[in-house]
Amino acid sequence: MPATRLIDRGVIRVSGEEARGFLQNLVTNDMDEVTPERAGYGALLTPQGKIICDFLIVALPAEDGGGFLIDCPLLQSADLMKRLKLYKLRAKVTLEDLTEACAVIAATDGAALPRDAGLVYDDPRLPALGQRAVTDRERGEALATGEPEAYHARRVGLGIPAGGRDFAYGDAFPHEALLDQLGGVSFRKGCYIGQEVVSRMQHRGTARSRVVPIVFDDGVAAETGAEASAGGKPIGTIGSGADGRALALLRLDRLADALAAGTAPLGGGLAFHLAEKPGFIRFPFPGEPGFGAAP
């Protein structure tokens, strides 16, 4: 059971009698579905519908004081705390940054973690990612025998985007980052910040850019952040890569046009092609039936 300590993650606790309702009015996922037995995946958006921060949310059992732990990107944790405090107003909610005291670990190979690893939960985005845990620093360091590179290589192989690597915070919409494919957006809950924009993209089918898995023809992935192009025209950005594969945020309509014209796409000057579509992705890839059709 190799586990990896994810040093690029922070932890925020949201507690108090109004914690669930407070988050329900802010985040993209349905907080009514988040229980001690089932974690959630969601995001906080700008009013314009762009991702400020995406995160995993874990409900604490009553015996542990209740409330929720937010497993979020470390570089976004200070901004997330700031924004949560801004929206708090008179809500009966307590906000605590536990990053210094806690560690986030994840199964490197998608397996289960020891039950005594801390607050252990199944990654809600995809079962194949296995389990994660929020624990204390000492316990986390003792359990973490796997390398972060191995965890991220598995993530890339499964086609799961990571914010800051595969899409830019403050610039990407949830559909572009695949939150709609990974259970990170509820289209049935009530209003939340940015909800109108997200719903409009869903119903009109206007998400032209998507993070998709790609394979480099020569087996060497381009650097993260390299430009993707076709026929000399930009079509997107290369994200995180491993073992000749990568994730890339691409304009799929422009990619389809290039492929139809017989033009090979390039990432950082290196030729690539779309990888086999992951099973969790429900929208059509270029060349598949239904691509480009009106919703």
Rank of each mutant, 00 (worst) to 15 (best):
M1F: 13
M1E: 11
A3I: 02
R5I: 10
I7N: 14
V11H: 04
G16S: 01
R20C: 11
Q24T: 03
L26P: 01
M31F: 10
T35A: 09
G40A: 05
L45P: 01
L60Y: 01
P73V: 09
Q76Y: 08
L80G: 06
M81G: 11
K85H: 13
L86I: 13
R90K: 12
V93L: 09
A101C: 05
I105D: 01
G110D: 08
G110I: 07
P114E: 06
R115G: 15
D116C: 02
L119Y: 11
Y121N: 02
D123F: 08
R125T: 00
D136I: 02
D136L: 06
E141H: 10
A142S: 13
A142W: 00
L143V: 01
A144S: 14
E149R: 14
A153D: 10
R154W: 07
V156Y: 12
G157I: 09
L158Y: 09
P161A: 06
D166N: 00
A168E: 15
L178G: 05
L179Q: 12
G183S: 11
G184C: 03
R188Q: 13
G194R: 00
M201H: 11
H203G: 06
G205C: 09
A207E: 00
S209V: 10
V215T: 14
D217I: 09
D218M: 02
A221S: 15
E223G: 13
G239C: 08
S240A: 15
D243R: 14
D243L: 12
G244W: 09
A248P: 06
L255G: 01
L259H: 10
G268Q: 02
G269E: 00
L270I: 12
F272V: 07
L274E: 04
L274I: 08
G287V: 03
A293D: 14
A293K: 14
